[in-house]
Design a protein around this nucleic acid. Structure first.
Lengths: 223, 223
DNA sequence: GTTCTAACGGGACCGTGGTTCCGTTAAGGT
DNA sequence: ACCTTAACGGAACCACGGTCCCGTTAGAAC
């Protein structure tokens, strides 16, 4: 997300398909997705992330994004039309950057590693602000909400392996819902970020991981 | 929050004290907080809640709020200036309407009652949308975030009694952080509402309560 | 290399969200 | 009951976010 050059192949063409699919209507960027178009998307999404991290969702100005991306504001409006539309695309892009989980072979260690990763991400000034902003955007628009849900579904699937492995080792009861355990690790941290405002320090992370593990061992996540 | 008439005494005068306290500057509504001023605040806050529930945070239009409240839009701008300012005041108002918790004498029952209350509130079309909106607003403005934190601090204090009682009965380990247990019940439900998008049904509520209780019994919330 | 046209970009344009002005209404103190 | 002035409300006003128009650039196909 930080420092790559120009022209990543960009597996997905950056769709923003119109909601009620108009017949015959073709979205800009879908016919010639290579070269310039990809470059524009690249820099606009990065600029959008920067702007969101700096100003927050309600101050997101597409003209400002265009300026940062060194792109005409007409282009931004044409391809994404609204702030929430742009953020939905940003989320799809973020979903593609999935970093692999750690696999220590110990459930306790893995869950703690996950919790600490989430906590450091959310307490990082830029990343934390960015996550707050995209979540705010998702509350305002169904399409953006879907993109956010996809993002988390991927993140959770990425980590649920450590739980299924623990079940196989007999550390956790059979039938334990692996995804739910991973969500349980994140949930208290997001609650702090968005609702209670309590600090997102290492102690909070370890407590979240410990609580999820204890509940899992007690069979609270068996289907 | 639904159907009362005009003229509740309004304990707090509806402050929106300016951020960098200008010397000598007096906020409108602070000198003559009674009668008309209170009536205006009353109907504006209700209208704001309605608008937020219907349209979401990003479509909140103060002129529209004024129209709904049958109040001049100048008045709304003068007293609250920004959407986030208005929402901060709305949150302070919501914090005052604290409904007492149930006290069944059983930790399991109390936690489940709490979880179900939260789940039904958040899955209610109006309330759920309203909560999403105020949380979105809180991510955009520090002042609104503070109001949100106060709101949750009160809600949590309201319920933490059932945990401290359980500790006294010896059901939970001494030193258990009561507030943290209550937060642990809510957290997975808010995670569903805001991040993962999973359903907020009774099963989710019971699972949240069960997991928090299991973790608490295992001593995961001991300081 | 040439052609065709998707996609970009500058600048003029326009509607509306927010401010200002000033007259009116009604708290709150005596 | 009277007076002072805080607070409200209508209407004109203004600025800027978003759209439109049209000429330019550069993918993709041959």
């Amino acid at each position: 997300m930080a420092s790559e050059g120009v022209g990543r192949p960009s597996s997905e063409p950056g769709r923003v398909e119109s909601s009620s699919v108009e017949p015959g209507r073709v979205e800009p960027g879908s016919v010639r997705p290579g070269g310039r178009t990809a470059r524009v998307r690249e820099s606009v999404l990065r600029a959008a992330g920067d702007a969101l991290a700096e100003h927050g969702f309600d101050r997101l100005d597409l003209a400002d994004v265009a300026r940062r991306a060194e792109v005409g504001k007409t282009t931004v409006y044409r391809r994404w039309s609204t702030p929430t539309g742009l953020i939905a695309d940003l989320l799809d892009d973020m979903a593609e950057q999935s970093s692999p989980r750690t696999a220590t072979g110990s459930l306790t260690e893995d869950l703690r590693a996950n919790a600490r990763l989430v906590a450091t991400t959310l307490s990082d000034p830029r990343q934390g602000a960015l996550f707050r902003s995209v979540i705010a955007a998702a509350t305002c628009d169904p399409r953006t909400a879907e993109a956010l849900h996809r993002f988390y579904a991927i993140r959770i699937k990425e980590w649920s392996g450590c739980v299924t492995e623990a079940v196989e080792r007999g550390e956790l009861p059979a039938g334990t819902d692996a995804d739910e355990v991973i969500r349980a690790v994140s949930a208290p941290l997001y609650y702090r970020l968005l609702a209670s405002g309590d600090p997102l320090d290492e102690a909070a992370a370890d407590r979240a991981a410990g609580a999820a593990e204890a509940a899992a061992r007690a069979g609270a996540y068996v289907n």
